[in-house]
């Protein structure tokens, strides 16, 4: 009995260590006299939030992030669904080779290819463009998304589709009536994975985009932090909270879509 209390206390202590820095962020964003140290706001204010959302630069960076992440994740879902379908349903000769190749690509550090990617973009004169940066982000998410999607498709019984096919449904009908409803949870998870990955990505837009009006929130926060981080914590905290919120909400949603233990797709057993 006593021993369980000790382990519970230890866990609570660890959880506090994790949550404390985030609580500081939340409190500072509402604190008129925000400082670097943790404190419960003495003077509660919405000013930091108002200032953040009325700054046109912040608004445009949010819109850029929305544009890139939304179009990226939609493309990732469509393209990975297309690629995963034959891998799951057809009897292909080189299926295992392709699967190994995809698994292999999931492991490559993107950081290592950023220098040549920048060069390629520069040579093709597509650097500093939102669409090309988005396409690159699509590519970086594809290997893992195809992998996850294939595993989800494997979970949807093929028999249903065959039955529909025998009943005379064509592919697009099968897709809409049979396949999509079955894999909706799976596609949602892929969508959320891709969205969060591009929303939080810093290095890719930091290298590939340079005009200030094209930067997404991650880079704008970094520059804000670099130039004023020592002075106006309150505003920076408010900006950070607003920037973190979408991925947080999506993460909570994804928990609903996932059956227990599916957090890693096929990456583990």
């Amino acid at each position: 009995m006593k021993k369980t209390h000790i382990t519970s206390l230890a866990l609570i202590f660890i959880a506090l260590l994790f949550i404390l820095p985030l609580l500081w962020l939340l409190f500072a964003s509402f604190d008129l006299e925000a400082s670097m140290a943790f404190q419960v706001p003495k003077q509660f204010t919405f000013n930091h939030y108002i200032k953040t959302v009325t700054n046109p630069l912040n608004v445009s960076s949010f819109l850029n992030s929305c544009f890139m992440s939304l179009s990226q994740s939609c493309l990732v879902v469509i393209i990975s669904l297309l690629a995963a379908y034959p891998l799951s349903r057809f009897n292909l000769k080189r299926k295992t080779t392709i699967l190994y190749g995809i698994l292999f690509l999931t492991g490559l550090p993107i950081t290592a290819i950023m220098v040549p990617v920048y060069l390629t973009f520069f040579n093709l004169q597509i650097e500093n463009k939102l669409w090309s940066t988005t396409l690159f982000l699509v590519a970086t998410s594809l290997p893992y998304s195809i992998w996850m999607m294939k595993n989800f498709l494997d979970g949807v019984p093929f028999a249903l589709e065959e039955a529909a096919s025998i009943d005379g449904a064509n592919f697009s009908q099968r897709l809409r009536k049979v396949i999509l409803p079955g894999i909706l949870p799976g596609t949602s998870v892929v969508f959320i994975y891709a969205f969060s990955a591009s929303w939080g990505n810093f290095f890719v837009p930091f290298i590939l985009l340079s005009s200030i009006e094209k930067l997404p929130a991650s880079v704008t926060i970094f520059q804000f932090f670099n130039s004023y981080g020592q002075v106006i914590y309150g505003e920076l905290a408010a900006f950070s909270v607003l920037y973190t919120l979408p991925v947080l909400v999506l993460y909570i949603l994804s928990q609903r879509f996932m059956a227990n233990g599916f957090a890693f797709g096929g990456a583990i057993k």
Binding site: L22, W24, L25, M36, F222, F225, G229
Partner: peptide, 30 residues
């Protein structure tokens, strides 16, 4: 409850993590 506290830090974007830790570890920090 415990898992959520740990997971929350995992979901936080890396630039925000840097900012939070910059404040946390500062000479006047928490």
């Amino acid at each position: 409850v415990i898992g959520s506290c740990v997971l929350l830090c995992w979901v936080t974007p890396e630039v925000v993590v840097s900012f939070v830790f910059f404040a946390y570890l500062n000479s006047n920090g928490s």
